[in-house]
Design a protein around this nucleic acid. Structure first.
Length: 292
DNA sequence: GTCTTGACATCCGACGATTT
DNA sequence: AAATCGTCGGATGTCAAGAC
């Protein structure tokens, strides 16, 4: 039973059906003024609203597990593992704030920086609006995210900032994290005010990508971004496309480096590093010196 | 006047530490 | 051992101010 689908409406139906096993409709849906169970408040709804919190951790858990399974399929032929909630204190992945998903050489929850090959931060939401019927136990899709009041996933600026903050925390925790790519994975596009930011984050080496695994976030072929200019954001349309990109990222060894130094100091470092006989050793010397 | 944005608010469950 | 308290991270609502 290998599911190689990306995030489509079926995944959200699966989520609600699975959650219905142990949660009441009231814990999963809003109830509007005429008694309908709704995933989000539709745009233009003017009746009395309530605020639902009980669904948050459920969808969070579901999407992290779903992503782990998806990534497992991507890397299994390479003999690697997708590990959910991975802990590695050395690079700020603690018990209380683990990595949502990592690709690793081993499948244990407790990881060493040397084994971790890629870190995924998952930020996914319920994207579409749904109406649930208790009597017939069915779900009806009411529309895409433009039709409801919620702002799902990476379309929220504070979700973006949270993901960026966590990534920087990992980057500054230890130089041991400097060779591990970090990717934020979501199921929505990003807003255009973040297009240049994600490209800068990629160029500067902090975050290697913001990826959406939702091929068609909008109904009726609604236009949505495929990628930003420098590919800081990517939308994946098929499982194969995702697999290629992950393998591509795994095949190149990259180093993150940063500092705040005067041109004098930087010039000196370059001069010293340049005395090494080849590019690889020049680079190693440079990286060694810049973090002193 | 309506839509979008960004900062702030909210509540839940899991967990660790502290108190009973 | 059980109860209590505080903290955290999960997603999403709220609302004033800005953008159109």
């Amino acid at each position: 039973m290998v599911d190689k689908q990306l995030w489509v409406k079926k995944q959200e139906i699966d989520f609600f059906n699975q959650a219905r096993g142990f949660a009441s409709p009231e814990q999963l849906f809003y109830k509007d003024n005429i008694g309908r169970y709704l995933a989000y408040w539709p745009k233009g709804y003017k009746g009395i609203k309530t605020t639902l919190q009980s669904r948050n951790s459920l969808i969070g858990n579901f999407t992290e597990k779903w992503t782990t399974n998806l990534i497992q399929e991507v890397v299994k032929e390479k003999g690697l593992y997708a590990v959910q909630d991975a802990i590695c204190d050395e690079i700020a992945l603690t018990n209380m704030s683990p990595a949502d998903v990592v690709i690793s050489k081993n499948k244990s929850i407790n990881q060493t920086p040397e084994d971790i090959i890629l870190i995924f931060e998952v930020k996914m939401s319920v994207v579409w609006n749904w109406e649930f019927s208790d009597s017939s136990n069915t779900l009806t899709c009411l529309g895409d995210f433009k039709s409801h009041q919620g702002n799902p996933g990476l379309l929220r600026s504070d979700s973006m900032l949270k993901a960026i903050g966590k990534s920087i925390n990992i980057r500054v925790s230890s130089y041991k994290s400097s060779t591990i790519p970090i990717v934020v994975i979501g199921n929505t596009p990003i807003t255009d005010s973040y297009y240049s930011k994600v490209d800068h984050l990629k160029t500067s080496g902090i975050i290697q990508g913001f990826w959406s695994v939702n091929p068609k976030p909008l109904d009726n072929n609604g236009e949505n971004i495929k990628h930003t200019q420098n590919d800081g954001f990517l939308r994946f349309d098929t499982f194969e496309e995702l697999k290629l990109k992950v393998h591509d990222l795994l095949s190149q060894e990259q180093n993150f480096f940063s500092s705040m130094k005067s041109k004098q100091e930087i010039g000196k470092i370059i001069e010293i590093a340049n005395k090494k006989p080849n590019y690889k050793e020049k680079a190693e010397e440079f990286l060694r010196l810049i973090k002193e």
